[in-house]
């Protein structure tokens, strides 16, 4: 494993510039960077931050929806929701592994999530209050996430791109499952329609913030775009999301809870009043309505499971390694 900094410490400016040139030329040719390659510290650290937050978001994203697995009202919904939340845990597993190729261990990353040292997506700091929240999350938040992930899957870092390809493939069903639930509620009883509108009203603002601060204030974006970690700015992603989903919401008779939102027909651009980014900042720094509850749930899973992991490790030391199956002997 290449430790952070090891690659750039002790290099003269000329050596550094040369290595940076080779690195950037590779990216500009559309080639991927692999774990053992030389990379600037900034590239490594930005990627660790990004993948770590992404992994945290998957594992914390399992919580609001997971809470509703026991309450799902039909076999189909119960199985689908269980499979969807399972996928999210699976995606966290893939992403923590991708981040590990850059240095930090999974143990360290899980600890950092619990201690509040590392962040997770703003939307998972809010509670899922009704069954319609499950539908809204699965349709719109997964929809927003897919916009982001399809783009990131074309990014320059090999292990992250590989993990994202698998994630995008698996998430295709999440979106359809969410849309189907929203259609059923939107075309259902008066109570169901009201439930859905209520969920949309509460989730709209967090969803508008999901892709991160607007380009005017985002401090990371330009470097990330240059190194093809990100291929679109936050505002470009938000715009793509709005183009894709707002017409469908209107078709379902959902009132989009943002009075300022309107389509500029000439440029095919959705115009809106910028959200209050100080709220976003507060929320992602664990100041959201259920931030504490989320972190506590992860802490409990980690701490309650410690004796299990320690017992397995002790057992592994005392066990002979089993023979491989005959097929590979």
């Amino acid at each position: 494993m290449v430790a952070a900094n090891e690659n750039t410490v002790g290099l003269s400016q000329a050596e550094y510039d040369h290595k940076l040139g080779v690195f950037e030329a590779r990216i500009n040719r559309g080639e991927k960077i692999e774990p053992a390659d030389w990379m600037p510290d900034d590239y490594r650290n930005q990627l660790i931050r990004l993948i770590h937050v992404h992994a945290n978001s998957e594992i914390c994203g399992a919580l609001p929806e997971g809470k509703w697995i026991p309450h799902a009202p039909t076999f189909k919904r119960k199985l689908a929701l269980l499979a969807k939340v399972q996928d999210e845990v699976g995606h966290a597993q893939l992403l923590y592994r991708a981040a590990e190729t850059l240095g930090p261990s999974r143990e360290q990353m899980l600890e950092d999530l619990i201690s509040g040292k590392s962040k997770f997506s703003n939307v998972f700091h809010y509670p899922a209050e009704t069954w319609a929240d499950v539908a809204t999350i699965a349709w719109l938040i997964d929809g927003a996430a897919i916009v982001n992930q399809v783009m990131m899957a074309e990014g320059s870092y090999g292990p992250y791109a590989r993990a994202l390809k698998r994630i995008c493939y698996e998430e295709a069903f999440h979106l359809k499952h969410g849309y189907e639930m929203c259609v059923v509620l939107a075309t259902g009883t008066k109570v169901q329609r009201a439930m859905l509108q209520d969920a949309m009203n509460r989730w709209w603002e967090p969803i508008m913030m999901f892709h991160g601060p607007s380009d005017k204030v985002s401090k990371h974006t330009s470097l990330l775009v240059r190194w093809r970690i990100k291929l679109k700015t936050n505002d470009e992603q938000r715009q793509q999301f709005l183009r894709q989903f707002v017409p469908k919401m209107i078709d379902l008779g959902i009132e989009v809870p943002d009075k300022s939102l309107r389509l500029d027909k000439k440029t095919e651009t959705w115009m809106y009043d910028d959200p209050d980014w100080s709220v976003f900042k507060k929320v992602v720094n664990n100041g959201g309505p259920v931030s504490g509850e989320r972190v506590e749930a992860r802490r409990l899973a980690h701490e309650d499971g410690r004796w299990v992991r320690e017992a397995l490790e002790a057992a592994a030391k005392n066990r002979p390694i089993p023979m491989p199956p005959a097929s590979i002997r």
């Binding site: 399992a62 269980l82 399972q86 966290a92 999974r106 899973a301 309650d304 410690r306």
Partner: peptide
């Protein structure tokens, strides 16, 4: 299924969730 998202190991979380799905599917 109450373990989904809370199991002691990420990999086991996935495996155990599959088993819960199997059981509900059998029902």
């Amino acid at each position: 299924s109450e373990w989904t998202g809370h199991a002691p190991i990420l990999e086991e979380d996935i495996a155990f969730s599959s088993m819960a799905q199997d059981e509900i599917g059998h029902a």
